[in-house]
Amino acid sequence: MNAVLVVARHELRLLVSLALWVARRRHQTGSGTAFGYARGQGPVMFGLAFVCVVESITMSVLLRDHPAVHRVVFLLDVYTIVLVVALHAASVVRPHVLDADSLRIRRAAHVDLRIPVEKIAHVRRELRTTHERAEGELDVVIGAQTSVTLELADTVPYFGFLGRRRDIRLVRFHADDADALVRAITTARSAPSPRPDRPG
């Protein structure tokens, strides 16, 4: 897929997330249980937005004698601020979701991985603040940390931002309440499978 189109679609998802955040709604949680992961990153994101505001004011002063350039730079600065806030909004409205069949691991609008519950071999609470890229492993890092580790009984496909496929056998990700999520996954894994209907 064309990289420009991918970026445009990603930014559209961010803007939709911003609208959902303003409306206090979540994105596609259905009947599953949502687990947030954005609690610790809010101050950092709004700090970044504040820096962008200061930069915008500074550029407005520097370019006050060049109105045409000033208008263009001002619009770009405002759009950047909107995207920074939208990035945080996407993390809030797109939580991880666990239902009877699958665990959906997300990070803002650019990671969305569904893992069937039956493919989860082991789950544990594991806080890590350093991560090295390894074949077959995916680190969905929030605020430089992950707090839950999944070992899979079989690989699952993961498609990166530009569509590149990787086969994943281990996933590390963060949840605000990692202990509750680990317990919920353990319970879902141990739940009995529904019996097939008997032939009439």
Rank of each mutant, 00 (worst) to 15 (best):
R125T: 06
H88R: 04
A100C: 01
H96P: 00
A89Y: 12
R106Y: 12
A90C: 14
L113P: 01
I115D: 06
D112I: 05
A100G: 09
L98C: 08
R125D: 11
V93M: 04
T129W: 13
L98N: 03
H88P: 00
H96F: 02
V123I: 10
H88Y: 15
E118V: 07
L103W: 10
R114A: 14
H110L: 13
V97H: 00
A109Q: 07
H96E: 03
V92Q: 11
V93E: 05
V92L: 10
V97S: 04
E126Y: 07
P116S: 10
D112M: 06
D99L: 12
S102M: 04
R107I: 09
V123G: 02
R104S: 13
H110E: 05
I120W: 03
R114P: 00
P95S: 04
L103A: 08
R114I: 05
K119D: 09
R104H: 14
S91Q: 08
E126R: 14
V97F: 03
R104Q: 14
S102I: 01
V117K: 00
A121C: 14
K119M: 10
A109R: 02
A108C: 14
V93A: 06
T130E: 15
A109V: 15
A100H: 03
T129A: 10
T130A: 07
L98S: 09
R125G: 03
A100P: 00
E126D: 15
R125S: 11
R128P: 00
R107Y: 14
L113H: 02
D99W: 13
V117E: 01
L127M: 15
R104D: 07
K119T: 13
S102L: 08
T129K: 11
R128N: 10
I115G: 04
I120F: 03
L127R: 15
R124L: 06
H122V: 05
K119L: 15
V111Y: 06
R128S: 12
A90G: 15
K119V: 11
S91Y: 03
A108L: 08
P95C: 07
A108G: 13
I115L: 10
A89T: 11
L113E: 01
A108M: 13
I115V: 15
H122S: 03
E118R: 05
D112C: 06
S102P: 00
H88I: 01
I115C: 09
H96D: 10
V117H: 00
D101F: 07
V92W: 09
A121L: 15
V97K: 00
D101L: 09
H96Y: 01
T130R: 09
H122Q: 08
L127P: 05
P95G: 06
I115W: 04
A121I: 07
V92E: 14
R94C: 15
D101H: 15
A89Q: 11
R106I: 11
A109M: 12
L127H: 13
R104E: 10
H96G: 05
V111A: 02
I105T: 02
T129G: 13
T130L: 12
E118Q: 11
P95D: 08
P116Y: 10
P116L: 13
